[in-house]
Design a protein around this nucleic acid. Structure first.
Lengths: 339, 339
DNA sequence: ATGAAAGCGCTAACAA
DNA sequence: TTGTTAGCGCTTTCAT
């Protein structure tokens, strides 16, 4: 008892009320077989002591917690936006939400969600949403839904956006403005979304009869720090591209910053297009042209799907793909030497 | 064993490896007294079975978890923005982050954080950050830091912004534009921030010699739904204000929406100023003039403070107040009948 | 109607 | 070096 006020346990309540812990437990859980008078007394003590059952102890016993877990590698704009949607879906569902963040530890890439899922599932959460997971083969006792899933994870129920079309839209937009040397700052190679965005880019170029210059395609891994380095290389290389399509908004914003540090004006000297349409994309200077992904809705759908799976209700589709669309702002314009 | 693949426990590992659970525990926790050969075998089995210790069981035993809890009423823009800052602070600290959302259940207002704190503290988290708590008297075993605290909670370590000055800045801005009938959509009466923003509003009016018309001061409770109703009343009342200062951005945005539905143009017919500078405030049409609160930094500071408290390191200040500043965008302009 | 006891998965004394 | 045992806070038979 070193703490100023130690945790009130069920034993404290039982002692104070002069009953056994079993009886207190029955009162808490509205079980039959407790005299009205006893019940009232116990409830009085509970109130008086401010007792609340420990979630941890409860979930170790019961295997049902009514808690849904969302596992994210880090709390950045995409995942937090998704959380808002998840919160919308959870409201009134009777479930509570626990978000677990791995804290974006870079050395620890790969398998974090597997570890956390192991640590949490079966106890503490009844099911989980995995955001941009690094693994495919999660197969646990409790249901799991992936958002923006790993490549080839067709087995896992998932929610994503139409990344292929999005990649095409972004590239076609730049082509339409007259760009021909269009660089690509690609995403995390292990994610389906990154592959499809790049594929969209390649397809759009091909359709326009523009050959892909592979020296203009670099991997930024969706990571702003890595992307800053890569963007620097891209923009100081021998034949600088007149436009860059970044695989997500945070790396697009990083690209704009790098360009400006290099003394290049956006969009006059180089156009930049992103992907995601996170709120921050409208805040940067100049505001970012990007591909909208309905992130909040994706969070909603993922939680709805998960709840149905937990309740063992039938689900129509275990793979949802939501539409993407182009949002034109000020970071893209015709190249200076445009026709 | 109804589940497709039940949770792997320490017992499964022990059995498979032909040792006792105690030995497995020692291996997991790097305790001395395990033969190299045994250790290797156990580790092999752990990998093979994909075993991870249950966080729940561990934290029921140990009373140290290296997990920090952030308790929010709901995941809306303010709290999610704060989470980003918290994530920044947690990175590299050795702690992990669990966010617990009460799910914004409206019927359940008041005391949610007390309940969750009871349920989590002592087990599962080593300490917690409470965001806009509804109670004052939290006094538990583990350290707690409040962000945007309840009125009069001087006992609880806290992080907030300079709300008084912010309220003044917003009101002075409108006064400076020539407005005299300035309405106020006040916040949650139980929060210090709401009281101070309103006080700033009143002080600025007083300093300008403009009497406060109390029919123009309504409570929106920081809640967009309630605020829509109240804004409707305010804008359809007998003497419509030419400007409204809303106590936070989500209610300011709600006010803009209501005004536009009423056929009023913003800012031509009515100016609107918010508070917070959440990313969404720049996205709305017209972009919102608001008071910037360094939300991310507040999240960072709160976590830093909490970690110091958990580690029982000395802290200089247990109450931090960060600066606020005006951000002028397009939702405010001189009144039509301006001088 | 009430309580004793077992056990959820794990760790830490203590014994062997 | 290894295993046995008790117990973290709770729920749930099963006696009483």
């Amino acid at each position: 008892m070193q703490q100023p006020r130690a945790r009130v346990t069920i034993r404290d309540v039982a002692e104070q009320a002069g009953v056994s812990v079993a009886t207190v437990s029955k009162v808490i859980n509205d079980r039959y077989g407790v005299a009205a008078e006893t019940m009232a007394r116990v409830q009085g003590v509970i109130r008086e002591l401010g007792y609340e059952a420990s979630l941890v102890a409860q979930s170790l016993r019961n295997h049902r917690t009514n808690v849904i877990g969302i596992l994210v590698a880090d709390l950045e704009p995409f995942s937090t936006e998704l959380l808002k949607g998840a919160a919308d879906a959870i409201r009134g569902s009777g479930f509570e939400l626990v978000v677990y963040s791995a804290g974006g530890r870079p050395g620890d890439v790969g398998g974090w969600e597997k570890r956390y899922l192991s640590r949490l599932s079966g106890t503490l959460v009844d099911g989980a949403v995995l955001v941009t997971p690094t693994v495919v083969d999660v197969q646990y006792g409790s249901p799991v839904v992936a958002v923006d899933p790993h490549t080839g994870s067709s087995s896992l129920p998932s929610v994503d956006a139409d990344n292929l079309r999005g990649g095409r839209l972004a590239t076609e937009h730049l082509l339409g403005l007259g760009h021909r040397r269009i660089g690509m700052l690609a995403g995390r190679a292990d994610l389906e979304s990154a592959q499809l965005r790049e594929q969209g880019y390649r397809e759009a170029l091909a359709a326009a009869g523009v050959p892909v210059d592979d020296t203009l395609v670099r991997v930024g891994g969706y990571d702003p720090n890595l992307s800053r380095l890569v963007a620097q290389e891209l923009l100081t290389g021998p034949q600088r591209p007149t436009a860059v399509f970044a695989a997500n908004d945070v790396t697009a914003i990083a690209t704009i910053e790098v360009a400006q540090q290099l003394g290049l004006r956006v969009p006059e000297d180089v156009s930049v297009v992103g992907f995601d349409n996170i709120p921050e994309s409208a805040l940067c200077v100049p505001p970012l042209t990007t591909v909208n992904q309905p992130i909040r809705t994706m969070g909603e759908r993922a939680v709805e799907l998960l709840i149905r799976l937990i309740r063992e209700q039938p689900v129509e589709h275990t793979h949802l793909t939501l539409a993407t669309e182009l949002v034109v702002r000020a970071s893209s314009a015709p190249p200076r030497s445009a026709p």
